[in-house]
Simulated assay, not measured.
Amino acid sequence: MISFSCRLARSRFVLDAAFSFPGGCTALFGPSGSGKSTIARLIAGIDRPDRGRIAVGDHVLVDTAAGIREPVHRRRIGLVFQDGQLLPHLSVRQNLAYGRYFAPREASAADFDEIVELLGIGHLLGARPSTLSGGERQRVAIGRALLAAPRLLIMDEPLAALDIARKHEILPFVERLRDTVGLPIIYVSHAVDEVARIANRVVRLAEGRVVAEGPPEEVFAAHMPTTPADRFEAVSFLSAAVLRESPEFAVSILAHPAGEIVVPALLGGDRGEVRVAIQATNVSLAVERPHGLSVRTILKGRIRRIVEGSGASAAVTVELAGGDSIAAYVTRHAVADLSLGEGCEVYALVKAVSIDERGVGRFDSVKHSKVRSE
């Protein structure tokens, strides 16, 4: 269990936040200036809270009331930043060995070869950081952090400096890390697609405070937006199995109880069940099953809830066969024109190209490997 409860006041910003999570990958999500990185720095010991308590399991890192503030070098917090921060004069192998240097003697050391294989960096061991791509540098930085035998891994906007191609390159490795290492991870990000794919819990922040906490499907559920931009952060998560691929069209077809879901990527037939993130603004509704459309994903369901705002929008939640729900933002005009109401049978329509393949995540029950540090 990781628990955090701290207050830190600065001239233009006040952080007053509390949350806890049992393990797995928890995302700190929110806009720039919401306090995400400040929390990471407090946990790592880079900053000091005015008051509060931070603990990883039974190990107390900070307790201002009890006068406890463990030094940074004894906290065993692995940090991965945007740029990797590798030592430029050392090879990849030497950078990794540098991480092992900080592992305490009493900790069970992670296996070097297993970490290298996990992150797919064996062919890079003799290279210098200046010759690596952004994604490769981040994988080496993750390896260095793991070899230091941390109690907790913090990834602070690790993909923010990467282009889309490099994000595609590194996300599967972060997924693999989450599923196999068994190390609690705090993932700092303001990108919905990353959080949707990586996290099994989300702490949403705004202006230094926790405004929502829970599973991604609850935190990102559709609601009446307080600002126009808020509607783009409402996301539904559907679980489906890879049914088949069509390499000639570069798409994968997923089997869901409510219908087939077409994803604009080749996911691999061995991926089993995946989680698909669909933005509410990319969902349309029909009262009859449509024909002759370019839309490939047509999911049958029943309206569970309609929330109308004072403006043009209405947030509609549709319960699908199989238990999943999908949200749609439509106009209040459409609700009236189609006579939509709670209990109505409808079809949720999603254009394949509107599904961000970066948000298609694999969540399985892979057993934790011996990489985990105690």
Rank of each mutant, 00 (worst) to 15 (best):
S11L: 13
R12W: 12
V14H: 14
L15W: 06
A17W: 14
G23Q: 01
A27D: 00
S37V: 10
S37A: 08
T38K: 08
I43N: 02
V60C: 03
R75M: 00
V80I: 09
V80G: 00
D83R: 13
L87F: 15
R93Q: 11
L96R: 04
S108L: 14
D111E: 08
D111R: 12
D113M: 07
D113S: 14
E114M: 15
I121K: 09
G122N: 10
G122C: 10
A127P: 03
P129F: 01
S133Q: 04
G135R: 01
E136W: 11
R137V: 07
R137A: 10
Q138S: 04
A141G: 03
L147I: 11
P150C: 12
R151A: 10
L153K: 05
D156C: 07
I164E: 14
A165T: 13
V174W: 00
E175Q: 10
R178K: 07
D179V: 06
A191I: 06
A199P: 00
N200R: 04
N200V: 09
R201E: 06
L205D: 02
E213G: 03
G214C: 09
V219C: 04
A222H: 02
M224E: 12
T226P: 01
E233C: 10
E233Y: 14
V235Q: 01
V242H: 02
V242D: 05
F249V: 13
F249A: 12
A250W: 09
A255R: 09
H256V: 07
G259A: 07
I261V: 05
R271V: 14
L285M: 06
V287H: 04
V287T: 13
E288K: 05
G292E: 03
R302Y: 09
S310E: 12
E319A: 15
E319C: 14
L320W: 05
D324R: 06
A327N: 13
T331M: 01
A334T: 15
L338Y: 07
E345Q: 10
A348G: 00
V350M: 03
K351L: 08
E357S: 15
G361R: 00
F363A: 11
K370A: 14
